[in-house]
Write a protein that binds this DNA or RNA. Structure first.
Lengths: 108, 108
DNA sequence: AATATACATCGTAATATTGCGATGTATTAG
DNA sequence: CTAATACATCGCAATATTACGATGTATATT
């Protein structure tokens, strides 16, 4: 027990769940919002920005990257992280669709 | 340790994180999609639909409700659950905004 | 009143997440 | 070559999540 029964759900449901899960932590939301604010790709600045240890930030970045929410590119000694637009587009479409569908139905 | 440092982040970041976290499980995504499909509010049907025990479904519904993603209304002996449009509207707006902001910036 | 239906909650086992310090690896600076 | 900078990864402790069966509570049926 304790393990999510991934295989019982559709690929799409698992995909959305994985992306949502990656955003399911305030630090990771904060990282995304920071990346949006600074326009350009930044990396170790995030460690200065957030009240978390470097190793913790690194872990969060790993999760965001693995969910496709950010991209990272080696730039000399440091790594340039930035928003991965495609995945956010998926979220936008997904929720736009949900709202559209809900609009056409009455609720309890 | 092991606890999220909620207090270090903005209310908004915690709110988005909580909603995203609630969607961060394929079973809960499946529940939302099921509710979208059946148009009307349903309840114990979800137990028949998903390969999970009744107690597990009940827990998932509790999380979805606490995040504001669904509403539940007592209807005799059963409870009528349905999508809470407002929260999905928040998500739609949030991600629309992200996509808009990203569009105006170049990346690595 | 007794039973059935529809949930919610409790207890608990297995596993995952969060966070940190310490350590490892690669690039850059001197 | 050495030291510094910029990360990633490891190992651990604390806590949270997932899932289930068992049990509790409320309404509905007989």
């Amino acid at each position: 027990m304790g393990t999510t029964k991934t295989s019982h759900f559709t690929e799409d449901q698992n995909r959305i769940a994985k992306i949502a899960k990656a955003l399911g932590h305030p630090a990771r939301v904060a990282i995304i919002e920071y990346l949006l604010k600074v326009n350009t790709c930044i990396c170790s600045d995030i460690v200065d920005e957030l009240p978390l240890a470097q190793s913790t930030i690194s872990q969060h970045l790993k999760e965001l990257k693995s969910a496709g929410l950010i991209k990272g590119e080696i730039e000399g000694a440091s790594i340039c992280y930035c928003i991965d637009e495609k995945t956010f587009q998926i979220l936008k479409s997904y929720f736009s669709n949900v709202v559209l569908t809900v609009n056409n139905q009455k609720c309890c």
